[in-house]
Simulated assay, not measured.
Amino acid sequence: MTETVAGGRTYVRFHENIESPRDDEADDIERIVRVLRSNNERAYRTNKRGLRDAHAKGHGILRGELEVLDGLAPELAQGMFAAPGTFPVIARLSSTSGAIRSDQLRGVRGLGLKVIGVTGPRALPDDTANTQDFIMVTHREFLFADAHAYSRTGMVTAWALARLSDRALKFGSEALDALNARVLPILGTKLPDTLAVFVEPNTHILGDTFHSSAPLRHGDHIVKMRLVPRSPEVCALAGERMPADGEVNAFAESVIDFFACHAAEYELQVQLCTDLAAMPIEDATKEWDDALSPYRTVAIIRYPKQETYTPQRRAFGDEVLSFNSWRGLDAHRPLGSINRLKRRVYDASSQYRHRVNHAPMLEPADESELPT
C-alpha cells in the first residue's frame, strides 16, 4: 500500500505482514549462530578475552548530541523524529571484522550510534532501555541478500577472516587489487562486491559516509538510513586516503588527533521506500535508486572537541557497552532477513562477550555515564 504526498511522490506504507521470510530461514540463522559462536570461542582462546563477532576493533568512543530538525515533512516526522528536540548520543567507530587487525588492512568500517532518552513502545518486548541504537557501515548495500545467502557463502568469509593472519589477508588484498586493475578490465568484468571491499583503499574514517545497508521501519513508512559529513572540517576528509604504510592503530590515532583540535557535525538522513519491487525489503544487496527517492535529512549530530579514546572511555565503550539495531523503538524496527539474522547474532555475541569478560551489561540512562 502506498500513499501520495506533496509533489506527487508515493511512499510505501508499513504494515505488520510486509516481510516475507523463507520457510528455512530459522534453520539458516541457527546454523550461522553456531558457526559464529565457534569464532567467539576461538577468539577468546587466542586473545584471552571475549570479542564482538563483528566490529571487534574500536577506533574511538564519541560523546555528542542529536538534534531532530524542526519543520520536517509528515513522512519524515516519524518515531523519535516526530517532534523537534535534542538527545545525547554515544558513538563507537570500528572496523567490521570480528578480529583485532592492523588498520593497514582494507575493509569495511562501522559506526554504532546510541541515542539516549528515547521513550515509546519497543521493538522487543523484553527491552526496558530508553536508548535507540542505529548501526551503520561504510558499504552502501549489504554483501549478502539474506540469511540463506549468508549461511551458504558469507560464513566461508566469516570463518576465513577469523583465522587468516594479517599478512595473508594483506597479500590476498594486493593480489585482488592487481587482478582488478590489470586483468578484469580486459575481460570486461569486475570483482564481486564480496571481494571488492578488500580492494577499496582505506579512507579517513571521519570523512566516510555510513549506511544502514538494510531497511528499517520509519513509523508509517520504510527507509534506509545514512550518516554524511556536514561541517567543513569533516567534509574535507571525505575520500582522503590513509597512508598505505600507516600505523597498526592509524584510525584511532587519526580520530584522537582530529577531536583534539576540532568539533564535527554530521547529517542523519533517510531514504523512503517508494516501490517494493525496485526497493525490496528481503534482498539487502539491491541498491535503492536515489532517483526514485532521494535521501533527506532528519537530524544533525554534533560532536564537540574531546578525548576520544582514553583508557577509561575505551574500557567502557569497547567492553561494557553493546550496540544492537534491535534495541530501540518499534517505530524503527529493523526489517528484512539480514536484520532478523542480526537479532539473534548480536544478542548471542553480546551475551557471550560479557559473560567471559565478567563485564556488566548496562544501557546508559545519561551521557555522563561515559567516562571522560
Rank of each mutant, 00 (worst) to 15 (best):
residue 111 L to Y: 03
residue 37 R to H: 11
residue 112 G to P: 08
residue 111 L to E: 11
residue 70 D to A: 10
residue 109 R to Q: 15
residue 100 I to T: 14
residue 41 E to S: 05
residue 109 R to T: 14
residue 108 V to K: 02
residue 60 G to H: 00
residue 155 M to G: 05
residue 133 D to W: 01
residue 110 G to S: 07
residue 119 T to H: 14
residue 128 T to W: 06
residue 109 R to Y: 14
residue 54 A to F: 14
residue 39 N to A: 13
residue 73 A to I: 08
residue 104 Q to H: 13
residue 133 D to M: 02
residue 90 I to K: 00
residue 57 K to R: 13
residue 116 I to L: 12
residue 137 V to G: 14
residue 143 L to T: 02
residue 69 L to H: 08
residue 76 L to T: 07
residue 115 V to A: 05
residue 121 P to E: 13
residue 91 A to N: 07
residue 71 G to L: 04
residue 58 G to H: 06
residue 69 L to G: 08
residue 60 G to K: 00
residue 38 S to I: 06
residue 37 R to A: 03
residue 104 Q to M: 12
residue 42 R to C: 03
residue 151 S to I: 02
residue 58 G to R: 07
residue 133 D to N: 12
residue 113 L to P: 00
residue 135 I to F: 09
residue 90 I to Q: 05
residue 124 L to I: 11
residue 132 Q to F: 01
residue 56 A to F: 06
residue 135 I to N: 13
residue 105 L to C: 04
residue 35 V to H: 15
residue 123 A to M: 07
residue 46 T to V: 15
residue 83 A to H: 15
residue 69 L to P: 10
residue 58 G to S: 10
residue 130 N to Y: 06
residue 114 K to W: 00
residue 53 D to E: 14
residue 149 A to V: 09
residue 34 R to C: 05
residue 37 R to L: 05
residue 38 S to W: 11
residue 67 E to I: 07
residue 129 A to V: 02
residue 144 F to I: 01
residue 35 V to M: 14
residue 120 G to Y: 02
residue 73 A to W: 02
residue 97 S to N: 13
residue 77 A to I: 03
residue 54 A to I: 10
residue 44 Y to K: 12
residue 127 D to N: 08
residue 88 P to S: 10
residue 84 P to E: 08
